[in-house]
Design a protein around this nucleic acid. Sequence first.
DNA 1: GCATCTTGCTGTTACGTATCAATGCTACTA
DNA 2: TAGTAGCATTGATACGTAACAGCAAGATGC
Lengths: 357, 357
Amino acid sequence: MSGITPRKRRPTQIDVARAAGVSQATVSSVLRDPSKPVNRIPEATRERVISAAEKLGYSPNAAAQRLVGGRSFLLGFHTFEEIFPADQTDFYFDFLLGVEREASRRGYDLMLLSPTAASQNTRGAFGSNATARRLLVADGGILVGRHVDNALLAELDANGHPFVLIGRREIAGIEVPYVAFDYASATARIVERLATAGHRNIGYIGEPGGGEQTEDRLEGYWRGIDEAGIRASSVKHGAPLTPAELERWVTERGITAVVVEPGDDDSNIARLVEAADALGLGIPSDLSVGVLGDPPFTAAPREWSRFVLSRYDVGAAAVELLIDILDEEDRPRQRVVAPEIVEGSTIAPPRTGSPKR
Amino acid sequence: MSGITPRKRRPTQIDVARAAGVSQATVSSVLRDPSKPVNRIPEATRERVISAAEKLGYSPNAAAQRLVGGRSFLLGFHTFEEIFPADQTDFYFDFLLGVEREASRRGYDLMLLSPTAASQNTRGAFGSNATARRLLVADGGILVGRHVDNALLAELDANGHPFVLIGRREIAGIEVPYVAFDYASATARIVERLATAGHRNIGYIGEPGGGEQTEDRLEGYWRGIDEAGIRASSVKHGAPLTPAELERWVTERGITAVVVEPGDDDSNIARLVEAADALGLGIPSDLSVGVLGDPPFTAAPREWSRFVLSRYDVGAAAVELLIDILDEEDRPRQRVVAPEIVEGSTIAPPRTGSPKR
DNA sequence: GCATCTTGCTGTTACGTATCAATGCTACTA
DNA sequence: TAGTAGCATTGATACGTAACAGCAAGATGC
């Protein structure tokens, strides 16, 4: 009680050096990558240093390593909303799973950067976002979420801080490194399936304000239409389809199948089912449906023909890309993960015989 | 292609100082805690510095801050098994949830330290475990899991690196800071419930090799027995109860109720149910049962009378304790979280009339 | 026997920040 | 007016590591 508690210091390279009778620089050399020619140290010395390090229980100070520009073997995982909402089957969780597993496999640990924490200790951070500061301890960062600010990306890029975005993003003048789902190809394949089943008139039901994701799906739609050699098709994009509109599609335009973006919740699908029911149209007997995604489908449970997005895979791919960037590997900075097509039971050949008039 | 890519540097305090026409030391003062008398800076200068910082997009280098002994506002979360097994409802997950939420609420971010990653980049770490090294970037660490090594705890303690263990642990000569479930009190309360219901002869079914947790429950058991003024009781501790043993308990010793540790999976409970079924004993009509924990109960689903452990709360409490330690708050270093008692339907008054003979 | 190369190690420096002793300055007191 | 107290700011330093230039001693070539 009377004495001071002498917070014992961790041993440093200097302590090891003293114990081994060499200089700090030598200790550093021994512990660094031995493949580098600069660090060639004769076996005798090496052993002396290592046994001293072992005796003292030395371990490097990661902050210092990081400060001199070395690796900290830490990757930041930044979401711009709460990482763990009450719901475990949360949007981010599968990404996190993939990121964690792959990072750990590659020998990196993870930093969870929550937006709440960032806004708390903003003291002295003036970037477009306090994020930049938090990310800096790590070797690089993985950013997730729709709400990632372009200004932030630009700032990270300008500061030369390595990062990877999950989700496609195009910004003029910057090549944003990202890993995204290949919505375009997946959509094209769904359209191809419909065409193969015999459909010649396929409608597209889009989501209002879907951003890059919608762009990609639309691109895939047109590509699919094109490759199947179909001419006339209809796109309804920007608001949910009403029963009246659906009726016009089917009767006037002769549409026998639709592809549909699920929407933020299942809203688009629920509307479609409602409309079809109201018109007495059976799915898939009267109308084939391909869903462009894999939502929970709580509003309209059914074995939808669709594609499944593996967030896990995307997370893992993001880690791979980020480490490639750190290693300055000369590989593409923008990558794409192919969704998996699920057969389902909502695609069938179109009704033969004369169409309703 | 021909030019060098000039990895732009992040602005530092020196850059800000130059822009504001002051010294680096002044910039540091302005950005530090203004409540400290040392950092009293007149408003005019403060504004000049801040606007310069904003213009340059300055944000502190966390590694440098950490190196000089400041806070990095990072907490390490270290498990000694995979953090995310395939199963989402994993052992660690709820702890993580509580830790994340509380940390974020307090303005700290989280580092996920996985054992896999640690073993990868061990280059140059010689502690009892590479863990110590990884933990160092953070201000402190939270350790979870049964497999936490005593030697590691001793080393962290010796190095003065702040940490908190989830789960009770007693090591001679060290006051290990921990947050644990109050198994003892919870068990005593379950025994009390049984006694209140009229039971005078209560058996204890333990788990082989349960360690501190079993110790605590047993202590609570004896305390409960004692407080209820019951004399004779039976303890079966070390192996699952067989039907023959159960019969002896009931017929020869007149046991009317048991408390049972659930076991690593639900094994102990499953065995008990089997044994009771074999003897034609109804639960709770012939035998009341209190479960000392809250396992998934997949093997024997029923509304067990038990206590529920909130891993979430323990996680949050661990963060609180760790930050207390960092702030050098003078509060107890070993804390306990009370489980919640669930009424359930497996406790009833003992059968009146003459016992089976 | 001298010049040159190689080996094995050391000295120094930089990284970006926080702290603290020290300095110049202003304003106030006697 | 001289002396002093307090304020605003600065210079120097330490933190632990990695990188690199440099140096002494021995090996090699001719």
